[in-house]
């Protein structure tokens, strides 16, 4: 099962939106900054419908703008399915609505924050703007949300239910979320919270202008298993071995405890295996793997690994990239991306 990335778009804590440059001018992470917030475009330019835009919260604007930009550059391809993924959804609106319930003694609740607080708001808004009354699904599977969405998209394409699928991962940072998670022990040992909206137009047929190919995807829960075996099995299912991979792009969050499974596997791979990392640029969030896939596809397209991704080892002629993401040392995922020949 494989598919082709016809186009993609990213709004992230780096200047990644609507630009041809690939992480050449990164935003340096301030040591004290606990959150990496997205570099946002002028949404009036991206979302023309003022009536829709004025009700959109930050995360909805990020998602919709990224999705529309992705569709705009997709060589005329329109989605037959819209699949979004989010760990916590429209959190700011949810917080606003819950706060309003408390403050107003469960009376006089504003309809807008209620309507916009649902997880599938972004997918719905995209469909409304694109006027696509097609399959529309939102995955809210914590650290496997984006992976579930891509898997669904690949199955839709494989089974012929769709020729083009718009799939994206979106999450936002809010102050309340940060404080709550900090009290739970998060963000104290090097990890930084992040946010972003990465969208991909996936297609079942190849085109000469495709960015990259997704050749495989698998998810597993971090436990005491042999991670080398899991990676080998995954690559074998794609007809490959680790020797066929030209670059490993991994998603360590910076907290050694949370990165334990990923780091233990990295310690086992050959020393001369070229590696790079991406999460220091986007921060940690449930759908951060979508930023990893965006980076990997860009490496294949541009045939260069930017220094911002902290490459180790020489990686010329990158044809295959293994993306290994881990969320909170629990949700692990593997993506195999290949250059479109």
């Amino acid at each position: 099962m494989k598919c082709y990335i016809r186009n993609m778009s990213a709004i992230s804590p780096q200047p990644t939106f609507a630009t041809d440059s690939f992480l050449t001018d990164v935003v340096e992470t301030v040591v004290d900054a606990n959150c990496l917030k997205a570099v946002e475009p002028d949404y009036k330019e991206c979302i023309k419908e003022a009536g829709l835009r004025r009700r959109m919260s930050h995360v909805i604007k990020m998602g919709v703008a990224s999705a529309l930009n992705c569709v705009e550059g997709a060589q005329g391809a329109m989605p037959d399915a819209i699949i979004t993924a989010t760990g916590l959804g429209c959190l700011a609106d949810t917080e606003k609505f819950l706060q309003s319930i408390v403050e107003n003694d469960e009376k006089l609740l504003n309809p807008t924050s209620f309507i916009q607080s649902t997880f599938n708001t972004i997918g719905g808004q995209i469909a409304l703007i694109l006027k696509r009354q097609c399959y529309n699904f939102t995955y809210v599977h914590r650290g496997f949300s984006f992976e579930s969405a891509v898997l669904d998209a690949m199955m839709q394409l494989e089974e012929g239910d769709a020729s083009n699928v718009l799939v994206g991962g979106i999450d936002e940072v809010t102050d309340t979320e940060y404080r709550v998670m900090e009290r739970m022990g998060f963000w104290r040992s090097g990890a930084k919270m992040g946010e972003g909206a990465q969208f991909f137009m996936l297609s079942s047929t190849v085109s000469s202008q495709d960015v990259a190919q997704i050749s495989g995807l698998c998810t597993f829960l971090a436990d005491t298993s042999d991670y080398s075996q899991k990676v080998q099995s995954f690559l074998a299912s794609c007809g490959m071995t680790l020797a066929d991979v030209d670059l490993v792009l991994s998603g360590e969050c910076g907290d050694a405890k949370m990165d334990a499974s990923l780091l233990s596997w990295k310690a086992s791979i050959p020393a001369n295996m070229p590696t790079a990392t991406f999460k220091h640029l986007c921060g940690e969030y449930q759908t951060a793997s979508s930023f990893g896939v965006w980076c990997a596809a860009n490496i294949l397209k541009n045939q260069m690994v930017p220094s911002a991704l902290r490459p180790v080892g020489k990686s010329d002629n990158v044809r295959r990239i293994l993306v290994f993401n881990s969320y909170r040392n629990k949700n692990c995922s593997l993506f195999l991306l290949e250059k479109v020949e």
């Binding site: 009536g51 009700r55 107003n104 006089l108 609740l109 504003n110 309809p111 807008t112």
Partner: peptide, 17 residues
């Protein structure tokens, strides 16, 4: 202003609140 039905609900809340 070109308001819609959701805005009408918001105005009802505004008047009560």
């Amino acid at each position: 202003l070109g308001l819609d039905s959701i805005d009408a609900l918001e105005i009802i809340i505004l008047l009560e609140k």
